Amino acid sequence: MSMEDNKRKKKVALVTGASGFLGSRICGELLRQGYSVKGFDITVLPRSRGHDDVVSPAYSNFELVVGDVTDYASLKKACSGCHVIFHVAAIVESWIPRPSGFMAVNVGGLRNVVRAYKETKTVEKIIYTSSFFALGFTDGHVADETQMHSGKYFCSEYERSKAMADEIALEAAREEGVAMVLLYPGLIYGVGNLTSGNTVANWLVERFNGRLPGYVGQEKAFSFSHVDDVARGHVAAMTKGRLGERYLLSGENASIKDVFDIAAEITHTQKPQFRIPIFVLAVYGWICIFFCKFISQKHPLVTPQAVDISRHQWAYSCEKAKAELDYNPRSLKEGLTEMVPWLKDIGLIKY
């Protein structure tokens, strides 16, 4: 083991939300690069089918701690002996039955992480995972890190919570002296845990099972970020990111139509032939909410909030991250070429 490898192994990173779609990949990337990792999560999710999420017992320098970012005592205890906190944990949904959960986890969790940083002598910095939603929609232009959320309108309580957390993070970093780098991924997709945060995978499952037969949303509706690119961007931010700075870890700006068309090309199947009207989706969203509340208890894919999000464009530039973090996002086609066959291999779609 080289001196540099030994130095990395002695550096301990705490990753909140370690069992999640992105958190598990950040753990894996840190381990691959030789760091010691302490994963922190409220529960241990089952490993995704047909894919190695890299957080393996084979890594002697990995420890999983069960805890909750809203429980300060468990978080403070987990921070002991750690040098860097990757704060990834969040509720990533367009809707939940108890909306207060967004503020408790997404805002309260960040406040607890900042407090733990201040009260734990070993912690040197925080790498905070925000969201493109914290910057607001971009209708008609491509935004960069200078965009601030207007605060006038929110499509969802998730968006509101991330915008509020962004204000807290910026204040902590720029006015309170907290050593923090702020990261803003785009719409994350890729092979891995099929949580509700893996939105593109869920879209494709619905599309190929006939439950989402047409196009929805705007042109350049989202900035698509592959989960592995985002994970590498996080680890790079630990050593290359400037404290107090914001970095967009976005990707190709494209539409849901582009996703479905590329998927059709990959699978040699027919592209959708029509666009689903927004009002139809809105009605369907309310029906899904009703079923979730009173019948199935299964989280709905389509919600009125998700429909509202689809009315807008969320297009961003990652030039700053490319220049300063050596961030290198892959194309949407490259990412989907890996992802679509995987969904078939694990039996979720047929073509």
Rank of each mutant, 00 (worst) to 15 (best):
R242Y: 04
T199H: 04
V54C: 12
R115T: 13
A165Y: 01
G285D: 10
W286G: 00
A254L: 04
V65N: 02
K322Q: 15
L281H: 05
R98L: 12
K152D: 04
A236K: 10
A116R: 04
N193A: 11
R32Y: 04
T43L: 14
V107L: 14
K152I: 03
Y35R: 11
V280E: 09
K271D: 02
F137I: 00
A231R: 01
L22Y: 01
I276P: 02
K240C: 07
L348E: 12
R25C: 03
E219N: 11
T16K: 04
S196Y: 11
S317Y: 07
E145G: 09
V54T: 13
C27Q: 03
G108W: 07
G20I: 07
K271E: 09
H141V: 11
Y184N: 04
V37D: 08
T199W: 05
D345Q: 15
S131M: 08
K322T: 09
V235F: 13
H268N: 15
R174T: 02
F62D: 01
F21P: 01
I42E: 03
I266S: 04
I349F: 02
N106P: 11
M339S: 09
A13I: 03
P341I: 10
T120N: 09
A173G: 01
A90M: 06
V54F: 14
V142P: 02
V340Y: 13
A172H: 03
P304F: 07
F260G: 00
T16N: 09
D345H: 13
E324R: 14
K118C: 13
